[in-house]
Amino acid sequence: MKIAVCVKRTPDTETRIKIAADGRSIDESGVKFVLNPYDEYAVEEALALKEKAGAGEVVVVALGADAAQETLRTALAMGADRGILLRPSGSTDDPYVVARALADELGAAEYDLVLFGKLAIDDYHHGVGTMVAALMDLPCVSAISALELADGHGTARREIEGGVEVVEFDLPAVLTADKGLNEPRYPALRGIMMAKKKPLEVKDVTVADGGVEVTALTLPAARAEGRIVGEGADAVPALVDALRNEAKVL
């Protein structure tokens, strides 16, 4: 089983966001970066599948600046076999551009499965995995919370509003991981030591022009100062009154 997992370097969820001087990105100083949480599920799934098959290779791929090597090393420490860093020549504001670059790289090798997170917790596109699938003309199930594979095909489950969709697909395929798929392992010390010696290839790639340009990043408009209407059950009438007459939501 040969599996590729696309991984992204993202700020830790606890990070306090500060806007950089350019007004269109975050100030990275003091920010802790992690392997995108949904990508952890994807890496875990790949490793578990390889272990179950008893043979195979797990390749982790990231598009980004040199700093993303650290992210790849984290995935290698979890157990992936080798990493590929693609350094883009230009803007990756448009997720289509990211998907194109990844699809070009992934298309050059034959994988049985290509895994993604369902979402990167920085840019929230929820799209790169499904786009790569469409570009590579592979079947794809997104945001899966359960997976079963058999010979040449598989079944995945994905949560939708008010239910669960059950999707059957043929291999090779692209899948994007949601919470619930598995419990990602922590890299063990041994894994961290071994990761340092695992191959990590760095390539410069030319990216296409995108159709989306980030012009500004701002802190969310401070919510109008809220107020405590009171304490205990006695405050309920005041709350109801405010919801009815001020907020007009009742």
């Binding site: 929230y124 989306v212 500004a216 802190l219 969310p220 408009a221």
Partner: peptide, 17 residues
């Protein structure tokens, strides 16, 4: 659009055809 766990708002310009 809300990004970074809704801790920031991103403004984008659609430049494509």
């Amino acid at each position: 659009r809300a990004v970074y766990s809704a801790k920031a708002m991103m403004t984008v310009r659609l430049t494509g055809r």
